[in-house]
Amino acid sequence: MDIPVDLLINAVVAGLLIGGFYASVTAGISISFGMLDIVNIAHPGFIILGSYIVYIINSTTGADPVVTAIVMLPVFYFLGMGIYLVYYAAFERRGQEALRGLAFFFGLLFITEVGLILAFGVDYRYVEARYIGPTWHIGFVDLPLRMLVPCVVSLLMVLGLQLFLMKSFIGRAIQAVAQDQLALQLLAANPTRIKRVAFGVSIATAALAGAFLIIIQPVEPSVGREYIGRAFAICVLGGMGSLPGAVIAAMLLGVVESFTATFYGPSWAPAVSFGFLLATLAVRPAGILGR
C-alpha cells in the first residue's frame, strides 16, 4: 500500500494529541486502581458527570470549560472522599472488595449514566469556547486547537500530579500505601486517611478529564463506557501505578487508534483498546515500564 507521508504524519500527530487526553482519563485510574488497588470502573462515569457540569455552566454563563473544571476540582475531591468512606466501610474493611466492591462501582457507573439520561436525554451536548473552531497549520501538519488545548492542559495536570506524588509528604505517603500498608502503619500514618485523600484526588482528575472530553467531542451519557477499556488498558500497559508509564501508554494507544481510524475507518477504533488490553494481559502483565 502506498501511504502518503502527510497523511501518515497527521495520523501520528492526531494520535499523540488524543493520547495526551487519554493520559488525563487514565491518571485517576492509575491512582485508584494502580496505587490503591481500588477497581473503580465507575471512573468514566464521573468523567461524563464532569462533562455535563461543564456543559451546564458553559451554556448558562459562557464560562471557559477548563476554568470551570478547575473550579470544580474541590467538589469532585470531596465526592471522591465520600465514595471512599462508603467503599471502606462496606467492602474494604470486611475484605469483600473483590466481588461486591466491583458490583458497587458498576452500580455507580450505571446510576450516573441512567441519571444523566433521565435529566438530559440521549442528545449530544457540546460546549462553546474560542479555541474550539480554529486549527493551526504548521507545514502540512494540522493542529486543531480543540485537540491541542486539552492535550497540553492534560499533560500539565499529569505533571502536577507526579510532582505532588514525589515531593509532598502526603504524595509520598500515597506511594508508600501502594507499596506496603503495614510499614506505613508502623510509621504512625493512617493508611485509610491517606487512601481517602488519594481517592479524592483521583476523582478530582475526572472533572478536568470531563472538560477535555466535551471540548474534543460532543458528549452523551453512554460514551463513558468506551473509556473503561481504554483507561484500564493504558493503566495496565503503563505499569499500573506509574503516571509516566501511563502517559507513554496513552500516546501509544492514541497513535494506534488514530492509524486504525485513518486506514480502516473510525468504526473500528473502539476494538483497538480491547486488543491492546488482551495483548497486554496475555503477554506483559507488568506493563511496558514494568520490571
Partner: peptide, 28 residues
C-alpha cells in the same frame, strides 16, 4: 484462557471491554 490466569479484576475488566469490541464487530 487469556485472562483467567491473572487476578480476578483483570477478567472483569476484560469482559467489560469484550462487550464493546463484539459490538464493534457486529456494527461492522
Amino acid at each position: 484462557y487469556l485472562t483467567l490466569r491473572l487476578r480476578g479484576v483483570f477478567f472483569a475488566i476484560a469482559t467489560l471491554a469484550m462487550a464493546v469490541v463484539l459490538q464493534t464487530l457486529v456494527i461492522n
